[in-house]
Design a protein around this nucleic acid. Structure first.
Length: 833
DNA sequence: AGCACGCCGACT
DNA sequence: GTCGGCGTGCTC
């Protein structure tokens, strides 16, 4: 018998074996590894899985049978399966998690239990309330899933439903929900009896002599078939014919009614070709890449983009396939300029693959790419690293230092840049990493010669004049001192110097860019009576007050609550202070909304646009705001770090950081690197001739930090070298590889003991000093789950195999010796950010 | 992840 | 007493 091992798209370890019925195989002779199958799994569900291996002569055994073969030939190339396997191994997660992440969900239909009323059911006894409610709801609204029913009724219904099914009142059906449907279009073809027989056809025309317009239409149809290179058995898109012969709908209907033409629905591609470029000439000539991995470490975004376009054009011209990854996609016309250029140079070979692309188009793109032999340019975000490309020759990771390339929240917790390096190595493709501010890791490898380092020395002819341009110098404003001197108003954070600078900049006709990297109005709310902070009930973090929503918000789990009048801890509503009675709950700190309010109070004449995840929460809001920015009516742009990826104005006269501490955030070994990159990127954007150079002000409460000195020196290489020296001394990446082993659970005691045991096992399997004791992370509790973390270190160039084996066996030992640990979530984060 | 089974507290 | 909660084990 034929046995297949299938990857099921669930976070379960291992593969699952099924028998393939002969009847299915005979209809799909090309069936093989990489095809999708629908299989029964668990009590009653059906899932779409992918065949990982196939044994044609397996022993007969009591496997469940494959229900359906979805692909007659493989849609997942072997190389892609290898990539999945490697990712599951390297990132220490189930293969099923990879499958779920890798394929567009339209390619993975699953079953849902549909509940429907049985016609003519008569209850023999009085039914309980819940059961009557179910029957009424189903009678009124028709068939639905359990979840829909429970939402309508407003409670769990497991037991009443089981009872009704047993009584025969409710019918259940496992229906595979198709998440992708091919687009169908109306095509016309000649009825079969006329296709071969010229004689019948001419008789037909004779018969139409009294209907000249019908005859004309039929002639046009035959003509169009010939033009598209088809014979009389061919099909023609309905609208093509109607365009050729306008206002002929009635005649067409007549021809169909007479049985001369047949109308058929046929699937059509949703992929649309982009108009090829009309600006070919502006593509720069570039030297071919000489190494497997190259870092392009540029000075300006324009030069970098020109270089990327040059490399892409050269690769496409040789028939190569290019995968270009970006950290974010833009949707506003002018901002999408670079995206537009990418589309134009690739023309018909352009394949966008990101969140702005609809699900159905993603499915069709995936299917097309998996068998594509022609040149291609795929433009996508992180998950585009999964797209199959049989002839991949170049992978570009633009702004490789961007943290968005790392998937953080769900498995696989992969870094698209690192997967790209592996993938390119496997397929013999080259990798081009580009950045204006490379990550310490990548720059390290480039400086040591592992990657080719390209540092464009001179600017291209067009931008030669830019060598006269300078970067703004960074000037500090000592917030702490000014507060002590009472120069900053109580409850405010914009210093008079900054306010004055904003005024004079706008007076000069220039725009102002302000950075305040903190969402909401007040980062926390404290009670002045009992000194406690308002905390999230699910997470160990302060609640942030958002004035626009008039609510307290947890930035980690999304919990919201109204701002209470009395302190929930001590009940105080007011407290007595030197200046009299005041509300006990005080809003502390400065979120971006509060800065916005302060700007409007102090500088009411100017329009402020705010960019943060709240004003950018939907595609629509984002578009509107970006269009507003583009229109140029506002004078001040105020943003969180989100502005990093947004198109912002030309002609900025002032850049100011409202609070440097907010940019640095929670300290970890990378926070200074991240902050420096952000601030340096803003600085690079404001390069200008000396007399026109914008000012760059930073308000900070500690002017003495080494970080600030480095920022003022303004030399990125020097800064990164210092960072690297410190990393080497303290055993951090890239000198040591890190893995975070996370444990989460509701039971604090079980969590603590399991974490301790696991860390002991790891210490037994690996050199002791490489494994830490369980640590309580900064976020000790998240979404109601307590958390522990074990850090595992591996010196640079030490093999991963031994460590990876230790991960698996330590987990196994834990499961054996502490079965209760099954109640905990345990997962790895390899190379965490 | 979902779904069934089985044990235990809360209300009629 | 039953209803409904949730912990536990299993999925080829």
């Amino acid at each position: 018998m034929i046995r297949v091992e299938v990857i099921i798209p669930l976070a379960l370890d291992g593969l699952f074996s099924y028998a393939v019925p002969e009847a299915l195989i005979s209809e799909a002779p090309g069936f093989s590894v990489g095809c999708r199958v629908v299989v029964p799994f668990g009590g009653k569900r059906y899932y779409t899985g992918v065949v990982f291996s196939l044994d044609k002569e397996a022993e007969i055994s009591a496997y469940k049978e494959v229900e359906q073969i979805l692909d007659a030939t493989p849609i997942i190339p072997e190389a892609t399966l290898k990539q999945w396997e490697w990712m599951a191994y390297y990132y220490a997660c189930p293969l099923g998690s990879i499958l779920r992440d890798a394929l567009p969900s339209g390619l993975l239909p699953e079953s849902k239990t549909m509940l429907s009323l049985v016609e003519g059911f008569e209850a023999e006894e009085a039914l309980p309330h819940a059961e009557l409610l179910i029957l009424d709801t189903l009678a009124e609204k028709g068939a639905m899933t359990t979840e829909q029913l429970e939402r309508l009724v407003g409670r769990r219904l497991t037991r009443p439903l089981l009872r009704l099914i047993e009584l025969g009142a409710v019918h259940t059906e496992e229906a595979l929900q198709p998440r992708y449907r091919p687009k169908l279009a109306r095509y016309l073809r000649l009825a079969p009896e006329y296709q071969e027989d010229e004689g019948a056809l001419s008789t037909l025309f004779d018969g139409l002599s009294r209907a000249p317009r019908q005859a004309e239409l039929l002639m046009a149809f035959l003509e169009a078939l010939r033009e598209t290179g088809q014979d009389h058995s061919g099909a023609l898109h309905r609208s093509v014919l109607l365009e050729a012969v306008p206002k002929s709908e009635a005649q067409l209907r007549a021809l169909i009614e007479k049985g001369i033409l047949e109308q058929v629905l046929e699937p059509v591609s949703r992929l649309r070709a982009v108009e090829p470029s009309s600006r070919e000439s502006s593509i720069a000539d570039v030297e071919p890449l000489t190494h497997p991995v190259t870092l392009y470490y540029g000075h300006t975004a324009e030069d970098k983009e020109r270089y990327i376009l040059g490399q892409i054009a050269a690769t496409l011209a040789c028939g190569g396939q290019v995968l270009y990854l970006t950290s974010s996609v833009h949707s506003v016309p002018s901002a999408a300029g670079f995206m537009q250029r990418l589309a134009e140079i690739a023309g018909a070979n352009y394949y966008p693959y990101h969140s702005l692309i609809g699900e159905a188009v993603r499915v069709e793109t995936y299917l097309r790419l998996s068998k594509l032999d022609s040149p291609a340019l795929v433009v996508g975000t992180r998950s585009a690293i999964y797209v199959p490309l049989p002839h991949l020759s170049l992978v570009i990771i633009d702004e490789e230092q961007e943290y968005l390339y790392k998937q953080q929240l769900v498995a696989p917790r992969y870094h698209a840049r690192d997967v790209a390096l592996w993938r390119a190595h496997q397929s013999g493709a080259q990798v081009l990493l580009t950045s204006l501010t490379p990550s310490a890791e990548v720059l390290f490898h480039a400086l040591r010669g592992k990657y080719q380092l390209l540092r464009p020395e001179s600017f291209s002819a067009e931008t030669a004049s830019q060598s006269q341009q300078v970067l703004p110098t960074i000037e500090l404003i000592d917030l702490k001192r000014l507060r002590q001197l009472r120069e900053v108003e109580w409850g405010h954070t914009l210093t008079p110097y900054l306010l004055e600078e904003i005024r004079s900049t706008i007076a000069r006709g220039k725009k102002v860019l302000l950075l305040q990297n903190r969402r909401g109005y007040a980062p926390y709310v404290t009670c002045d009576a009992c000194q406690t902070r308002l905390l999230c009930p699910n997470c160990d973090v302060s609640l942030t007050y958002h004035r626009t929503r008039a609510a307290l918000l947890c930035h980690y789990c999304g919990y919201t609550a109204a701002l209470p009048e009395a302190c929930p801890s001590c009940g105080a509503i007011e407290v007595m202070t030197k200046s009299g009675l005041r509300p006990a709950l005080r809003q502390v700190g400065y979120g971006i909304e509060r800065v916005e309010e302060e700007l409007k109070e102090k500088l009411p004449a100017y329009e402020v646009l705010r960019i943060d995840s709240d004003t950018f929460s939907s595609q629509k809001k984002r578009m509107e705001l970006l269009e507003q920015i583009e229109s140029g009516s506002a004078e001040i742009l105020l943003g969180t770090q989100l502005i990093r990826n947004q198109p912002i104005w030309e002609g900025i006269g002032l850049i100011a950081v409202v609070q440097l501490d907010a940019v640095l955030g929670v300290p970890d070994f990378r926070s200074e690197e991240r902050a420096y990159q952000l601030l340096h990127q803003l600085r690079l954007r404001s390069r200008a001739p000396r007399e026109d150079c914008p000012r760059y002000l930073i308000q900070t409460s500690s002017t003495e930090q080494a970080f600030i000195k480095a920022l003022q020196v303004g030399d990125y290489d020097t800064f990164i070298n210092e960072v690297l020296a410190e990393r080497e001394a303290t055993n951090f990446p890239p000198f040591t590889r890190l893995t975070h082993l996370w444990l989460r659970g509701k039971d604090k005691r079980l969590l603590a003991s399991a974490a301790l045991v696991l860390s002991q096992y790891l210490k037994g399997l690996l050199p002791n000093e490489r494994v830490t004791d369980p640590q309580i992370p900064d976020l000790a509790r998240l979404e109601g789950y307590y958390q522990r973390q074990i850090v595992i270190r591996r010196p640079f160039q030490q093999s991963y195999r031994e460590e990876r084996a230790a991960f698996a066996s330590a987990l196994q030992q834990l499961r054996l010796s502490m079965p209760e640990s099954k109640r905990l979530q345990i997962f790895f984060d390899v190379d965490p950010l």
